[in-house]
Amino acid sequence: MNAGETMKKTRHGKSSAPDAEDPAEREQELRELARRLSDLDGDALDAQLLVTFREARDTGAVPVDAGFFLVVHILLAMADEALPEDAKVRELGRELETMEQDYGLPEDKSWAPGEAPEEWEALSRQYEIACDEARAAFFRSYGEAEMADMFLLDRAGFIRRFENGRNFFHGLPMLPDFLN
């Protein structure tokens, strides 16, 4: 190792020279990680991914917006799984279903744009706001208050950072409906 090179501490506590990692050893470590992750149930896997994505963001292993995307992506997935547990979301969802039944809308159908009754549109907006508030509360519960505030108060900025980060990994545009 040259005098100008520094030793880096690997995750497993071993020191190695930069770029001197054995490819076969690295492949074995990745295979072991993949095996351990495949043994996890959904919640444990989500938690492990969140820890990993936060580490990538917080250590600067990826660009700032790419780190933002990774953490947001897993937290949104986790939050959406938890939405039915939110009392307000559940109640408004039941009210929407009741209203749809009262209007005779078949269970597997939806109204065409502009055809829904005004009171359903208003209730639907309340439901979407409740979902957004529940997602933001979920972000806060996982220590991401700044992200929660941005999600609620600066949706355009949130979407911009999300898309910039997503583009780092995937390239093509993708805007989930709830981000609009």
Rank of each mutant, 00 (worst) to 15 (best):
N2F: 11
A3L: 13
E5R: 09
M7P: 00
H12Y: 12
H12D: 15
K14D: 12
S16A: 13
S16L: 14
P18R: 05
A20Y: 06
A20M: 09
E27V: 08
E29Y: 07
L30H: 12
R31W: 08
L33R: 15
R35S: 14
R35Q: 15
R35T: 14
L37S: 10
S38I: 03
L40M: 15
G42N: 08
D43R: 13
D46S: 13
L49H: 03
L50A: 06
F53P: 00
F53H: 10
R54P: 04
E55A: 11
R57H: 03
T59I: 00
V62I: 04
V64A: 15
D65W: 01
A66M: 04
F69K: 00
V72S: 13
A77F: 07
L83Q: 05
P84S: 07
K88E: 15
R90N: 09
R90K: 14
R94W: 08
E97L: 13
T98W: 07
T98Y: 08
M99Q: 10
G104Y: 03
L105D: 02
P106N: 05
E107V: 11
E107C: 01
K109A: 15
G114H: 05
E119R: 08
W120K: 11
A122Q: 14
A122N: 08
L123M: 10
S124E: 12
Q126R: 13
I129P: 00
A130H: 03
E133D: 11
A136Q: 03
A136Y: 01
F139Y: 14
M147R: 04
M147P: 02
A148W: 02
L153F: 09
N164Q: 11
R166V: 02
F168T: 05
G171N: 05
M174V: 13
